[in-house]
Simulated scan of single mutants.
Amino acid sequence: MDPVIQLSQLSKRYKNFSAVEDVSLEIEKGEIYGFIGLNGSGKTTTIKMLLGMVRPSHGSCSIQGRKIELSNHSMWANVGSLVETPYAYPELTVKENLEIFRQLRGVSDADAVHQVMEQLKLTGYADKKAGKLSLGNTQRLGIAKALLHKPEILILDEPSNGLDPTGIIEVRELFQHLAKDLGVTIFMSSHLLSEVAKIATTIGVIHQGKLLQEIKADGFKDLLRKRLVIDAREKDRAMTELNNAGYSAVFNKDGRIETTADYALQYPDEISRYLVSSGIPPTHLALEEEDLESYFLRVITQRKE
């Protein structure tokens, strides 16, 4: 089966600055692809090229097997998008904004506006002017416009921007429902790395315009570094005992003992038993795992070195 979204050696240069450089990726139907990177890493430029808003300097992108070109107007009927700050008519209400967009999109179902307001929890703001909305509800309105025509593909730039914790969870659950139950393909950029880890089936790491790595969600755990962190009243003695036993223990920046020895990570209870039998009972013993933020910073730091 052909990928729903495909980027092939996609590049964009502005004079002497390379915003995006040779980015290639494929996204299958029903996937949620999380595109993560620092501000200025090339996320938005990539999305704008994918939506035909910016012309690539090199390479190509296609949606459902059709190359992104000005002449391919009909392909956008299956695409919903949100890029940068959501636009709305500030003097019109939420409902009026969505009604205008429904007509522009040629959606015949008059109930579509009510349905999408329900989806995005905007019903209570239906008669409020868009210009008076909070940042979070403005974002909800932008997502509602992207979903109004029930697209098969969503291309979203920072969709959680401005949402409060409740809103982030609601939007996450909505996207998971769309992808899993309806087969909607979602390509979303974000700097909220922990949120991406919860929702994406594939994560792409972009830095300084280059796609450094792609990670499948089911294999992500294997890439995270793990460590056993130990504290004791007699730290120096505990450290000596662990090193004598071959666990390569060190003091971390918090002054606690840390080891990454495989046996210690697999059997932390045995390490606790060993210290107790040596007369040095631990006051703290915890298996800690790197999170996506730490992993991401490690990946881009390694690239700089």
Rank of each mutant, 00 (worst) to 15 (best):
P159Q: 02
L192D: 02
I155Q: 11
I271A: 05
H191P: 07
L223W: 01
N161T: 05
A249D: 03
L154Y: 00
L211S: 10
Q176C: 06
V229K: 04
K198G: 00
F251M: 14
D181I: 07
P268L: 11
H177M: 10
L212Y: 04
A238S: 14
A232C: 14
I215Y: 11
V229S: 01
N244K: 12
L154G: 08
K235S: 07
V184N: 04
A179G: 01
N244T: 14
I168S: 00
A249S: 08
P151W: 01
E152L: 10
G246H: 11
Q266N: 11
I155W: 06
H207T: 07
N244I: 05
R256V: 08
I153N: 02
I203R: 00
R225T: 15
E214R: 14
V171F: 03
L163P: 05
N244Q: 15
R273D: 14
G167P: 07
S272A: 13
S272L: 08
R273Q: 12
P151F: 08
K210L: 08
D218N: 14
I168W: 02
Y263F: 13
I186M: 03
I199K: 01
P159H: 01
Q213R: 14
K253A: 12
K235R: 15
E270W: 05
I153G: 04
G183S: 10
T259W: 05
A179V: 08
M239E: 08
K210E: 11
N252Y: 13
Y263C: 04
H177E: 13
T240C: 08
A197V: 01
D236V: 02
R273A: 12
N161P: 07
A232M: 10
G246L: 13
Q208F: 06
G162I: 07
E170V: 09
G209A: 12
R237A: 11
A217T: 09
R273F: 09
L242H: 06
A197C: 06
L174Y: 04
E241A: 12
A197H: 07
I215T: 03
V205F: 15
A179R: 01
T240M: 10
D231A: 12
A217Y: 00
G255Y: 14
I203S: 05
T201E: 06
R273S: 15
Y274E: 03
P159R: 04
P159I: 01
P165G: 11
D269E: 15
Y263P: 03
K210V: 13
N252A: 10
S190N: 00
A245V: 10
R237H: 07
Q266M: 12
L154A: 06
L228Y: 09
E234Y: 11
T202M: 05
V229E: 08
I169E: 06
I271G: 05
I271M: 13
I153T: 09
I230T: 08
H191F: 04
I199F: 01
K226W: 00
D254N: 14
K253W: 05
L242I: 03
A200V: 01
I155N: 03
K198E: 13
R225M: 09
G209L: 07
K216I: 04
E173P: 04
E241P: 09
I169S: 04
Y247A: 10
E258D: 07
E214G: 02
T202G: 03
A200Y: 08
S272C: 11
